[in-house]
Design a protein around this nucleic acid. Structure first.
Lengths: 346, 346
DNA sequence: CTGAAAGCGCTTACAG
DNA sequence: CTGAAAGCGCTTACAG
């Protein structure tokens, strides 16, 4: 039982046939006589012989492996994308390899190197936060990659990248959230999360401003707090916001970058004695598994990450060239309610 | 720019050298003359040529790809394992492919088929819940797999599987939790989660009973509630438990299968008017990212999943044969406190 | 320093 | 129905 396992030569020799015949048995070719087939089958199963898909791939130019490039799997949203992709891929006979984000934007050595060398049958690249200096690099990497395998983009995909894609636009989603909050009577709405230098597709503040403008509400600079994507980030950002304002000016609603940031916001608000949703409504994004179990249960935007991953695989395998919009929808829970009635200050 | 990309022949022809020379330039062989090297390099970078690692693998018998078999990625604990494995693998020049659990236990066709055919450089198999009828099948699959690649087991690994492994024993961990709760004065301790038919390594109730016995506390059958691993499961199980008992007999502490089940337990308790931790202490397992943000923050057992994944890759690549115990530690937060003083019933 | 040739483990025309 | 041979895209002795 050597580590290398058996080859088609071993099986052919033991069965007393040529390797061509073994190969035919393997692929279920009906031209093989029953007698030969049985003999070969017997050797194959006795030896637990498994043909090398690598060698097969040499002729078929196929690896039955897809790649997925994700910013980071630890964020449950990405784990959901991966799960969807993996399920879809598996159903079609493929497995999927994870590549870290830096595999496609690393300056050292040649970018996209490893991915291209792998000769995958396709790769899904999830484009989210992208420092400005990486934008051109990403374009180049994708171009090189495309020489060797089909590429599908998902996430907040820049409009100028001409690839099949499933994209969502955070500005648009955020505008929808703002409009709904205004409908609930909120006027002091804060936006927490994101980075100033983000690309437009990611800039929730664009939709935020548009939503306010449409309702003739002022844009108040201090209600816009930039921060990273973790619960700690959200907690610190909310803290900063509340510290910088008189309680009478505190927002009555907060739109968080994602559910983790929302968790942090709720914690910071609670520490200040604010009741959610009586004093403060909170809306997250991503609809994580824990959202219903927060106190109060968190209203969130479901971005259907699992289905996104699944659909990306479909696009990849079908070769369709189109660009689609990702679905999203409100999931209403108790963290979001009508604006509080104006009360006197203490 | 055909999808197939260039081959070493294209580059050799364009540079006016033999493929052997191109190959030497590629691997940085110093025997190539400076002039030739530059000429070849120029063609390579102008064409963005990337040698096929597949073809390379034919001679080197290496794929630079590891596999990981996970019960399900959606559970954040497994995503952490994958992340750790991926980080470790990437640092060593490998990428890792995800294989669903059924790829190794599916009855249809030959089990382990796909994995063995992939000729990976190694595979990590995470063994957790395992229906009794799959146990023998798993042993066989692993045996076949081992013919073709090194295997490392992680999770709650059955003692009779003779593979390099990193294992944790839930019975032992649970016993530790019980002892600590008893130290806090608890006497009515419930255990929620798991399946009656689980293997001993997973049977938290074994450690649970031992912990009680050591303290001469009775084992009360109704305090032991079997259920699945989601928050919904936990909520329903807790509900069942509370409904079945007089309030005066309600447990003062709950040990949950994992953090998700713990979330469910807290929700069910809250609905009954129980205060955590004043009336009920709750201990989870896994220390998920949301544990600190639950209300109250959840005490949990950190099983260091990321490090587990990383270490598994080390074992795989180093070829070490040993079996290690996984680390775990308490993360104390507010959900767990001293037992309430006995009070009168309403 | 460089090239011709064999080999990695398969598949697939092409003969017979 | 079956086998000998070429080929997939590389690497690596072996010559020169």
């Amino acid at each position: 039982m050597s580590r290398s396992g058996y080859t088609i030569y071993d099986i052919a020799a033991e069965a007393g046939v040529s390797i061509a015949t073994v190969s035919r048995v393997l692929k279920g070719d009906s031209s093989v006589s029953e007698k030969t087939r049985l003999k070969v089958q017997e050797v194959i199963s006795r030896r637990n012989y498994r043909p090398s898909s690598i060698a097969r791939g040499m002729t078929s130019k196929t690896t039955h492996t897809l790649g997925i490039v994700l910013p980071k799997l630890l964020n449950p949203n990405y784990a959901m994308i991966f799960t969807g992709a993996s399920d879809g891929a598996w159903a079609a006979g493929y497995s999927v390899s994870l590549f870290p984000w830096r595999s496609i934007t690393d300056q050292e050595g040649n970018p996209a190197l490893l991915l291209a060398e792998r000769r995958l049958d396709g790769v899904i690249v999830c484009v989210e936060y992208l420092p400005p200096h990486q934008q051109e690099l990403l374009g180049r990497s994708l171009g090189e990659l495309r020489q060797y395998m089909p590429v599908v983009l998902i996430g907040c995909v820049p409009a100028d990248l001409d690839y099949p894609a499933i994209s969502y636009n955070m500005a648009e989603i955020t505008q929808g959230i703002v409009e709904e909050l205004i409908r609930l009577g909120h006027e002091r709405i804060a936006l927490i999360g994101g980075m100033e230098e983000d690309r437009d597709e990611l800039r929730r503040d664009i939709g935020y401003r548009q939503g306010l403008e449409a309702a003739h509400l002022p844009f108040v600079d201090s209600y816009r707090v930039w921060c990273g994507g973790t619960a700690e980030d959200g907690e610190a950002a909310m803290d900063r916001l509340l510290s910088s304002l008189l309680p009478s000016h505190w927002p009555t609603a907060v739109i968080a970058l994602n559910d983790m940031v929302a968790m942090g916001c709720m914690a910071a608000a609670r520490r200040r004695g604010l009741q959610v949703p009586e004093d403060l409504s909170v809306v997250g994004c991503g609809n994580l598994f824990c959202a219903p179990y927060l106190v109060p249960p968190l209203t969130s935007i479901d971005t259907h990450q699992q289905q996104l991953g699944r659909r990306a695989v479909e696009l990849l395998l079908s070769g369709e060239k189109r660009r689609e919009d990702a679905r999203w929808e409100w999931v209403r829970r108790d963290s979001c309610g009508p604006a509080p009635l104006p009360k006197e200050k203490t």
